[in-house]
């Protein structure tokens, strides 16, 4: 019994001496990884009477943001938003339009589904983040710029425009940087959905297309 106790004590001493400092040292290395996860509500609005196709490129489906540490005390960051992007846009578009069809190939590269009114292709142009150690402000922030292309089922361009979204969350007791960045990203995605849903029918490049489908009335030309 005493022999077992002695060997157990030795084992735990060795553990304390070697493994714990090693674990602490390793925990300080490696990038901070955030897999953005959140729930996104269906928009509360009358659906627009359009049959819209949507095409998510692989780059969008697997969207990841990498940022290398700029100061010695900082860590690298990897923020994966792809799955959350697809979840949010699927929920939003299905609530915004009477029918949404997911395309399996890029418009214009395969036999097209001609009964669609148009095909939306979203992409993330840019993503920036800020954490309190960067800004000395006690909020975590995510900023994104989207680029949207609306094309015909055959792939001919109808319109292209950009849209910004922003999300932030305050610091909270016992909240890790990763959890806060995730929350800020969810807020940015919600903001993107809100911006898209409330401004879609006002996008200038889409006006002729929206008018041709009776979604918005043609504006009278002002007298000179």
């Amino acid at each position: 019994m005493s022999r077992w106790t002695t060997s157990t004590e030795r084992f735990f001493t060795a553990l304390r001496v070697s493994v714990i400092p090693l674990a602490l040292a390793l925990s300080a290395c490696g990038p901070a990884h955030v897999q953005v996860e959140g729930e996104f509500p269906t928009p509360l609005m009358e659906p627009l009477p359009l049959k819209l196709g949507v095409w998510y490129a692989d780059e969008f489906r697997n969207h990841e943001f990498h940022d290398e540490a700029k100061a010695p005390g900082d860590s690298d960051w990897v923020v994966t938003t792809g799955q959350a992007q697809v979840n949010m846009w699927d929920t939003l578009l299905q609530g915004m339009f009477t029918e949404v069809v997911h395309l399996e190939s890029e418009p214009g590269t395969a036999p097209s589904q001609i009964d669609l009114d148009g095909v939306l292709i979203p992409s993330v142009d840019e993503l920036q983040y800020a954490i309190p150690t960067h800004t000395s402000i006690k909020v975590y922030e995510i900023w994104m710029r989207y680029r949207f292309k609306l094309v015909s089922p055959a792939g001919e361009p109808i319109g292209e425009w950009t849209m910004a979204s922003y999300g932030k969350t305050p610091t909270a007791f016992l909240q890790s940087d990763e959890a806060a960045v995730n929350f800020a990203a969810v807020m940015a995605l919600r903001d993107a959905g809100a911006n898209f849903a409330t401004s879609f029918t006002d996008v200038p490049v889409l006006q002729p297309w929206l008018q041709s489908r009776g979604i918005v009335a043609a504006k009278p030309i002002a007298a000179p």
Partner: peptide, 13 residues
């Protein structure tokens, strides 16, 4: 409430 009335009570809207 925010989820029930999304997107009308987000900070932007």
């Amino acid at each position: 409430f925010l989820n029930s009335l999304y997107p009308w009570f987000e900070p932007r809207t």
